[in-house]
Design a protein around this nucleic acid. Structure first.
Lengths: 138, 138
DNA sequence: TTCCATGCAAACACTTTGCACCGTG
DNA sequence: CACGGTGCAAAGTGTTTGCATGGAA
């Protein structure tokens, strides 16, 4: 997948430097699926040496700016970051059991058209989180 | 509107007490439209006497539990509270200019049906915020 | 007179910032 | 060897909690 292979080039192409910390943090985000900055920090430390919390915040910001990762708000607390090397998706979160479901953007097409037509508003699909109740928690 | 008139009864009926602070805070939320806890606090203080920040947090929680107000996340920062004495709605937020639009839930009906059918997931419409780009910010 | 609610202060969770040193390019 | 990145410590923002006092019912 080209996105995975040439991210080092993207970094350098944008004037950024390739550091061990940045590699470790991207690897953690990909490994964890959906993770808060704190979870990323602990994961990096578990799998290798120490990295500072502020480096995690700064790096997540850079990686998102480059389009390698995205964040969504899956709880009322910290944001969670996920890799975008795979296909775009949005999230359903159960307000009761907190379970997270990743959903294909196709189901949003009609809503996108409606909001585009009625409000000239373009949805940021990758950032969307819909809260509600899952099957088990009715 | 019955919701407005009998909220005092609802408080007492649920074992809560009617205090001046609770009246002031509810009035502020209704006056402000969409407001963070901090904005509510400042508004209460501007229009009357001092109230403590922790009282604001505790009161917003109670009022939401009673169904008098709701909160949504209109920024990556603090939540915003709004009254539900008027009709239910959800929010569009422009990621560029931060403008907020309130939208009628009708446009979600197809999405609701799809998520219900495919994932057995019931959307919490009042809590929904969709981020994207507004007309002016393309 | 009973408890729920409030004020106050401290603690907590999450994030940002300033600055000296480090190391990539 | 220049300049962007990191670690560290401190401060900033938003929220919660424990406890003594106050006041609604």
């Amino acid at each position: 997948m080209s996105t995975r292979d040439d991210w080092r080039e993207r970094l350098r192409g944008s004037g950024y430097r390739l550091t061990p910390q940045r590699e470790l943090i991207l690897a953690s985000v990909e490994r964890l699926g959906h993770a808060t900055p704190d979870e990323v920090l602990r994961d990096v430390r578990r799998h290798s040496e120490a990295v500072n919390a502020s480096t995690v915040y700064r790096t997540l910001e850079v990686l998102e700016e480059l389009g390698l990762i995205r964040h969504a708000h899956l709880s009322d607390r910290a944001p969670t970051y996920h890799s975008v090397t795979d296909h775009e998706h949005f999230h359903l979160v159960c307000r009761n059991c907190r379970e997270v479901f990743s959903v294909d953007p196709d189901v949003l097409s009609e809503l996108q058209e409606t909001l585009e037509a009625d409000h000239r508003f373009a949805i940021d699909v990758g950032h969307l989180t819909i809260f509600g109740r899952c099957e088990k928690c009715r």
